[in-house]
């Protein structure tokens, strides 16, 4: 059985330190909504980013890419992103980030 390692708060904070300036630069910000025991990090976009037409790119690009590199993070979710999973997967592959569909 695979044992999932706990998410290091320091590593998570370091990832957010990389992401946040990109978000702040667009008049938005990012918050952690939840971290599940299974390692799913749910985030929430606020400010200008919460209604940005390009929110899906922000999520799949910088946010998910950086956070998925943090040990123990199994997935990153953002309830505000309503794009289809296929679209998100297409974006991820386009950006060279981790695919959403295996």
């Amino acid at each position: 059985m695979m044992v999932r390692r706990a998410i290091s708060p320091e590593a998570l904070e370091a990832a957010f330190a990389r992401i946040r300036p990109l978000i702040l630069g667009h008049g938005g910000d990012i918050e952690i909504a939840d971290i599940s025991p299974e390692g799913v990090v749910s985030i929430k976009l606020v400010g200008a980013c919460k209604a940005c037409p390009n929110m899906a790119m922000t999520y799949v690009g910088p946010i998910r890419t950086y956070l998925m590199e943090v040990e123990g993070v199994a997935e990153v979710r953002c309830e505000q992103v309503n794009a289809s999973i296929k679209t998100l997967d297409r974006l991820a592959r386009l950006l060279g980030s981790r695919p959403l569909i295996a």
């Binding site: 899906a56 794009a83 289809s84 999973i85 296929k86």
Partner: peptide
């Protein structure tokens, strides 16, 4: 149902 083509081309959700 949201047609596959609209999901693919416009990113609309199921």
């Amino acid at each position: 149902e949201m047609p596959e083509e609209l999901q693919e081309r416009y990113g609309y959700p199921e």
